[in-house]
């Protein structure tokens, strides 16, 4: 069975007028790198919360259908059960950070999972090094810059060593170099077998590494395919989702009858395709 399976899943927050998720059917297999995108308010965060059980167990509301994670129905198991399987990086990092300093924050998750202390220490050091957090080690998570907090939130989730990394706009506060670096790390972990579900508005940053893009609108999935398939489709512009500039150029050239060999997602790819087209 798939690692994550949404089976006709609908959800409405307590007190809300409309459904945040409407009859979602979605399966995610081991090893995929899925980018979830769509207009603000379309249900991306709610979908992430449903993968690690926060919806419906922490955020109460109306629910229909089922979500199975690692073959277990999220309605029937505690949130804690899914913590080790699906690690969520919150959209607002400050809401995720609960301890008194960065080092403790990173250790907190694995300690709660009962990982042995020697292994916890090893992970903490490895991740501090990997994410360049040495200078922040002793800082209070609420006395840092927005981008620093976001890196720490990512670190704390990676320390759980989750089977699925669910990252909700994990680069929104990061400077461009730091965003590149974090996305590189995620992509490396994906190649080593970690399944990735990542929410992002700026598709130019993530499209080239993803294996799949799921496009949402008003609580529904409206497109699902490879990055090039989805991004080249007109529905993106129709619902107000930004596509990489390189892909946009491809579409504009296409409309003039000028065909490039394939759909570019980055500036370099575009340049290469234009050169190929002129020889």
């Amino acid at each position: 069975m798939a690692l994550v399976k949404f089976d006709d899943f609908s959800y409405k927050y307590y007190g809300a007028d409309s459904l945040a998720l409407k009859k979602i059917n979605l399966t995610i297999d081991n090893g995929e790198y899925v980018v979830i995108t769509g207009p603000s308010g379309c249900g991306k965060t709610t979908l992430c919360r449903a993968i690690n059980g926060l919806v419906p167990r922490f955020h109460r509301g109306y629910i229909a259908g089922h979500v199975y994670v690692d073959e277990k129905d999220t309605r029937e198991h505690e949130v804690a059960h899914f913590a080790a399987i699906a690690g969520l990086v919150f959209q607002n990092p400050e809401n995720q950070l609960v301890t008194l300093n960065v080092e403790k924050e990173i250790a907190f998750g694995p300690e709660n999972l009962g990982v042995n202390p020697v292994e916890v220490r090893r992970r903490v050091e490895e991740i501090i090094d990997l994410l360049d957090l040495e200078h922040l080690r002793d800082k209070h998570p609420h006395e840092m810059s927005g981008g620093e907090q976001q890196r720490v939130a990512m670190a704390a989730t990676l320390a759980l060593n989750p089977q699925i990394l669910v990252a909700d706009e994990p680069t929104s506060n990061l400077d461009p170099k730091s965003a590149e670096k974090i996305l590189e790390i995620i992509s490396t972990l994906n190649k080593r077998g970690m399944t990735v579900v990542l929410v992002e508005h700026r598709l130019d940053l993530v499209a080239k590494e993803a294996t799949r893009v799921v496009l949402m609108d008003r609580g529904r999935i409206v497109a699902d395919g490879t990055p090039t398939e989805v991004l080249v489709a007109d529905i993106c512009q129709d619902i107000g989702v930004g596509i990489p500039k390189a892909t946009e150029i491809y579409k504009r050239l296409n409309a003039k009858g000028l065909r490039l060999g394939s759909v570019p997602l980055t500036g370099e790819e575009l340049a290469l395709l234009i050169q190929e087209g002129t020889v």
Binding site: D175, P176, E180, G267, E268, A271, I274
Partner: peptide, 13 residues
């Protein structure tokens, strides 16, 4: 810690 935007990268290439 800034990077070149996509179109400028394309122009450079």
């Amino acid at each position: 810690s800034l990077t070149l935007p996509q179109m400028t990268q394309a122009a450079k290439a």
